[in-house]
Design a protein around this nucleic acid. Sequence first.
DNA 1: GCCACATCGTTAGACGGCAAATGACTAGGA
DNA 2: TCCTAGTCATTTGCCGTCTAACGATGTGGC
Lengths: 139, 139
Amino acid sequence: MPEFLDLHSRTTKVLRGLAETAMRRHGLHQGQDHLLAALWERDGSTPGEIAAALHVTTPTVVKMATRMSAVGLLTRRRDEHDSRLVRLWLTDAGRALQGPVEAERRSLEEKVTADLTEDERRQLMIALTKVYKSGSDLL
Amino acid sequence: MPEFLDLHSRTTKVLRGLAETAMRRHGLHQGQDHLLAALWERDGSTPGEIAAALHVTTPTVVKMATRMSAVGLLTRRRDEHDSRLVRLWLTDAGRALQGPVEAERRSLEEKVTADLTEDERRQLMIALTKVYKSGSDLL
DNA sequence: GCCACATCGTTAGACGGCAAATGACTAGGA
DNA sequence: TCCTAGTCATTTGCCGTCTAACGATGTGGC
């Protein structure tokens, strides 16, 4: 199995595990912090908009929204001008997580890149960006 | 959201998508190629051994093995000396995929790293390895 | 020789993710 | 005005992944 794909895949699993336990501390499941981040950025977004922002399909957002609304992180409301649209609105509980969750995420990033020199970190971002671009074009 | 974690996460989604469509060409689902690779390396491995090799939990391997045996890629057989153990054995169909799948995977790696200079590729591997190590220690 | 403990695989249930099918509503053209 | 085509969200069903609970088999100490 090719070097880079293999290493990237292993790294993904590790980061996934770390993010999972970090977010569980705030009562969230993996990925729900991203959905919240979209609403912190623009409260009242539609599932489609959020899906596009998260690079995920709409059904995924719909399912997550259902669960998150069940635990009181957000509410669903139809748009008053266009009834096809649904808008997701943060509850106080959802808003309250912004500070802690963003701090948690920054902390994780720091811990995980702690062993990199400033130069290595820069090179990593450049190279990974190229891979991301190449991959996106192929998709 | 932190730079690196965000970029890595987006890259993961893209690579996942590419691997998915690449493997579907051979009738496989994402990840099943890794399980097969473990058996190509050592046919007759146990679910636990494979799980360790793939950095995945045993139940995950068990489920995948059930599906893959249903489509005739491998068979289950209990170990004759220790009945607690189950060993997974490749069928001809499973063995036949080795060449094509490995080629497919190499091809994907090349396409995705095509824009990197040799130096960038080396730096990427070094930096990502450090991240992987730091992450593993935190887990 | 028997029984408690360790080691495996399996099952159950939850979640994120995807594709395809469905349903509700809007908008635009004849 | 009405009907068709387009746009959304949702549902359904599958896969990979995890944790926790369960069940079966070996092993070692007494």
